[in-house]
Amino acid sequence: MKILVCIKQVPDLESRFKIAASGTWYAAEDLAWRLNEYDEYAVEEAVRLREASGEGELVVLSLGPERAGEAIRKALAMGADRGVHLLDPLSHDKDPRQIAGAIAEYARGEKFDVIFTGLQSQDRGSAQVGLLLAGLLALPAVTTIVAFSHEAGLVTVRRELEGGARAVVKVRLPALFTCQLGLNTPRYPTLPNIMKAKKKEVRTIAVTDLPQVAALVRTEKLAFPDKRGAGVVLEGATSEVADRLIAILKEKTTVLK
């Protein structure tokens, strides 16, 4: 079985963001970077399928700047066989259709049986790239999966719905799946596997060498949301702060007896 998992490197969301000089994206300086959380589940599910099927290969792909290579190495340490880095220093300016278009240009000739992506990225959250990629490759796709099982080319998944209900869905391979949080328990790469991952092949392809896809959306502005304003901010784990909080709760709510 030939498996592709598409991943993205995103900033740690606990970071303190600053708006870049362009005014359309966050400044990349002083941020800690990590593998997009949804993609951790996608990589884990891909590795499990790879291990269960025994033969074939698992390719991990990321489109992004130089540093996205770190996310590829992490996926390789989790168990992917080889990496593909679609190098694009300007990926933050690309819209979902451009990103899916570039990935499709690479993936079209590879004839993958299964493709996993995260449901969405934590920074953009468009939830489009996986489905657009499936559409461009003419593959069936199922989104927001929280359970996956495979037997002889037939896949059964559970889609998570609002309120926690699930839909049980069947589809034949080849197909693409977008992974929701909680799909599995992503493994931590072990030190020997981190060392092994350093020797695995990563092929770099400049997106400028692929056919270009026109943008459909323009980002006009990135900004901080307006604070609701009414909230009181108290700082510090101190006795005084606890007293003030209790005083506020006594005044503003009826629940403190």
Binding site: A127, T219, E220, P225
Partner: peptide
């Protein structure tokens, strides 16, 4: 084009959250 998770209108453009709601993008 698709614009995902619109939270507000902005003179023909659309405001969407980014970074888990920490930021807002106008598209």
């Amino acid at each position: 084009p698709q614009i995902s998770e619109v939270v507000a209108l902005a003179e023909g453009a659309f405001v969407v959250p980014a970074c888990n709601g920490k930021l807002r993008r106008t598209l």
